[in-house]
Write a protein that binds this DNA or RNA. Structure first.
Lengths: 229, 229
DNA sequence: GATCACATTTGTGTATACAGAAACCGCAAT
DNA sequence: ATTGCGGTTTCTGTATACACAAATGTGATC
């Protein structure tokens, strides 16, 4: 049935279960599969074009990620995002990021953060360049997170952070940040990066604390605004 | 993260995948399946008495738990525990527990912690009563953790903590604590409990920080001692 | 005796068949 | 109109068969 030429390590040797996982995960993260959406094994297997076995494996991973919950007897459904759950997620996020930043400030190689610093200085200009600029800005944040992860050198901590970021991606979708907030966030990031470069864990931790506090306020405000409209 | 409670009525026969998961997990945690042990699907499926499909589901969950890693091409193996990984785990643990304790001190209902306090006061006596006493002591710690989890009321945070505790169980096995350390730990717990009762998040957090610091030192010392013998 | 080609074995990834349980529907009885 | 009951349908959980890849063994050839 599967006459794909050899398992090319780089190309498209994705297993069916992997394809199913990525597709479902992507659809959940970008909101195509809305919270509460009920999904059935056969239905989804058919839609994605894999059989039930790999689909079940994919769903098991999504459940482990906390993106999906099994329903008694009747398939599974996409977890929903309540305002309470956002605050709860941020309580976890704060603990993890503060610790990560603290360790990064202790262990970092300054060079990559110097580069990031220069990029973040130009971030406000970036944010004047419309959608493309905003996209570039988010890419910058990703780079920053990668640099922190690399500096932390702790698979447990980085793994936990990655799980949190998965949920954050969904939250960002339903609470689009406004440009003013993004500009403020860029300044906050700059402060954090400076603290990391300076090798000052305590300053970096506190700057992160504040950044996340503001971030949560902004998200909650955006959601409240949306729901009142 | 499975919600098996909803799925399984009391006494109902466990699903094969659930049986396989619990058995393998138990065997890994108590060291029966040693770190590095190579496991093959067919072999394990036969041994446990389930077919390959549920076994694969069980293994997928173990991989998500971080207890098992897939090997390139050839089966899977139990993750090993290096000294480095213990320190790394404690870096994550510290972030989570400090946050949890902080929140618990803020949100707690004092009553259950008052009860725990009384129990912990008698802990030193317990530790003079041999193996049974030690066992009772560990049960007390579990109660404390449950009380904290309940007070925290944050599924994300509690979930992350549970994952950490899974790995701690393995570490405890290979670094048996001595009675002196346990007595000191009991005193540290008492301090934490008092801070929670007093509703003093900062004091509780710092007491936790110190407790975990001592705990890590003790674990590392015990391992060093073992490896030198 | 060494090396290469090829067959055999072993093991994973996937599809599918089958059984049992839960939800659904219609009908009857109150 | 509502509730209780049985048959039907649908869906999951499990076993198993098959395909393909990797590792291993074996024999022929030099």
């Amino acid at each position: 049935m599967y006459t794909e030429t050899a398992m090319l390590r780089l190309g498209a040797p994705l297993r069916a279960s992997e394809r199913a996982y990525r597709q479902l995960r992507g659809e959940i993260l970008n909101g195509l599969l809305a919270p509460g959406a009920a999904l059935l094994e056969v239905e989804q297997a058919e839609r994605i074009g894999v059989s039930r076995t790999p689909l079940r494996e994919a769903v098991a991973r999504l459940i482990a990620d906390g993106l999906v919950v099994g329903r008694r007897g009747r398939g599974f459904e996409v977890t929903d995002i309540s305002v309470d759950s956002i605050s709860e997620l941020y309580e976890l996020r704060q603990a993890l990021e503060v610790q990560a930043i603290r360790l990064a400030a202790t262990r970092r190689e300054p060079a990559p953060f110097q580069e990031l610093r220069e990029a973040f200085v130009t971030a406000p200009e970036l944010l004047d360049q419309g959608d493309l600029g905003v996209h570039r800005y988010y890419a910058l944040i990703d780079e920053f997170e990668d640099a922190v992860d690399a500096a932390v050198e702790n698979p447990f901590l980085v793994g936990a952070l990655r799980a949190v970021r998965t949920h954050l991606a969904r939250i960002r979708r339903l609470a689009r940040s406004n440009p003013r907030r993004l500009r403020a966030a860029a300044a906050e990031h700059l402060l954090i990066i400076d603290a990391i470069i300076a090798g000052d864990p305590s300053l970096a931790a506190h700057a992160t604390h504040i950044h996340l506090h503001q971030s949560l306020l902004s998200v909650l405000a955006a959601i409240k605004e949306d729901s009142e409209r």
